[in-house]
Write a protein that binds this DNA or RNA. Structure first.
Lengths: 123, 123
DNA sequence: ACCTTCCGACTACAACTGTAATCGATTCGA
DNA sequence: TCGAATCGATTACAGTTGTAGTCGGAAGGT
């Protein structure tokens, strides 16, 4: 749901709320990663954009707002992963897997781990 | 290389050039997918943006230009895949694989195919 | 009853994107 | 040779994004 795209900067905010919610704007600002130290107004702008995209909601707490995510991280991840697969791999999973496997230069341990995963999935 | 991001619309153009190059702007326009029938000026704008991003190059042919990709599809795909893994999976391959595998509901045939791939990769 | 401080709302503004129109030069068909 | 078609270059313009400043009102200290 909620097909409005979430931008990079907005995602930084979402990650904070996914880790802990509800939070005030000030709390969110305090939890920014060190390579992203934005001003409080910037954080508020991003929060209100996320509000209008229906990605978060807020509830009044006295005279400030408490923000919480409306879309789940799982949903977002699924959506973005699918987007990549569609854009670059013709919607097919296998070519992406092949690409990643090659790219990542998997260790034998990784390979065993994947094999274990696959066994579990076999119907 | 060339860390300028390629936008969605620009990617449509790159796909055409990756399939066949060199092409003139008009040729590119003629090969647009049916859900993306842009005007010729639009195609030219996108080509010139790709030029300034050093994603394509052009060579004069009489009074028009022949465009060719400068960055390879493989490189682009690798870059974007890594970007996704970094943004959403903490840079780790395994969680992405687990997510995709679950998401895609792999058939037994798919699983066998993957197992074959893995065997090939074992050192 | 004031002054400071804090909040959300609104405004700003440049870069990038999607989508195109227009213009000046050139070439090609008649 | 003259008008039409075609090219690349320039300009346009609204929406999104990154990043922030400002403003009016409310809360809280004194």
């Amino acid at each position: 749901m909620s097909s409005e795209r979430i931008s990079d900067a907005e995602l930084t905010i979402m990650e904070i709320l996914w880790e802990r919610a509800p939070l005030t704007a000030t709390d969110v600002a305090a939890r920014l990663p060190h390579d992203r130290e934005w001003s409080l107004p910037t954080v508020k702008t991003l929060l209100s954009r996320l509000l209008s995209k229906a990605a978060v909601e807020h509830r009044a707490d006295g005279r400030r707002f408490l923000y919480s995510p409306l879309i789940g991280r799982e949903d977002y991840v699924a959506h973005e992963s699918k987007r990549l697969v569609d854009r670059l791999f013709g919607g097919k999973f296998m070519p992406l897997f092949a690409h990643l496997a090659e790219q990542e230069n998997l260790s034998d341990a990784d390979i065993s781990e994947i094999e274990r995963l696959l066994q579990e999935m076999k119907s």
